[in-house]
């Protein structure tokens, strides 16, 4: 048991728990699983009724839960690496800890923020919650997540990685 917990967790365990996040969040809070709305919440919280309509018209009070949820994910990441792992978890390869790597993270992060907000969701809101609720636009979004990711990996792979 302890060995199972301290070692990297298998795909089936992870898949089951991630899938259960959807009903759990609905049952415990009435909210739909989604993470990228937290970016808009940060913007709306800073703007407080000013700035572009996208932020001005977003109810930051109603969206506050997305930041609490993000805070929970941060807490979970902390517990995973500080207490529940024998070997430290590698998140980013060593090559990213450099000026070039930081530029890649900034540009890539920009695409994540811009793209998820334009698409209206990310892997959680579209791919998992959306498809699980048989929402066709979410299936389309997920297909194009992979179109974009595969194009970059195979098209620019030699240049980037």
């Amino acid at each position: 048991m302890i060995d199972f917990i301290m070692a990297p967790w298998p795909w089936w365990f992870s898949g089951i728990i991630i899938g259960l996040i959807v009903p759990l969040l609905y049952l415990l809070s009435g909210k739909g699983f989604g993470v990228s709305t937290s970016f808009q919440e940060v913007g709306a919280l800073c703007a407080r009724g000013t700035g572009p309509d996208y932020l001005k018209n977003f109810d930051w009070r109603a969206g506050l839960w997305t930041l609490v949820f993000a805070g929970g994910i941060i807490l979970g990441g902390y517990l995973a690496n500080s207490i529940l792992s024998r070997e430290p978890i590698t998140f980013l390869p060593e090559s990213f800890h450099s000026t070039g790597g930081m530029i890649k993270l900034l540009i890539g992060g920009f695409l994540v923020g811009f793209g998820t907000r334009y698409a209206g969701g990310c892997t959680s809101g579209h791919a998992i919650n959306g498809i699980a609720n048989l929402n066709l636009p979410s299936l389309i979004a997920t297909i194009f997540f992979f179109v974009g990711g595969l194009a970059v990996t195979w098209g620019l792979g030699g240049l980037l990685f």
Binding site: G77, I107, L111, S124, I140, A141, F144, F145
Partner: peptide
């Protein structure tokens, strides 16, 4: 945007290795 934004996000996911949830998990993990 579902298509265009979706592709843009996918590109960012491939570059950073993180969709929004994992960004927070990585930060928490130090």
């Amino acid at each position: 945007g579902v298509i265009i934004g979706g592709m843009i996000f996918g590109a960012g996911w491939a570059i950073t290795g993180a969709c929004p949830g994992p960004i927070y998990a990585q930060i928490g993990g130090g």
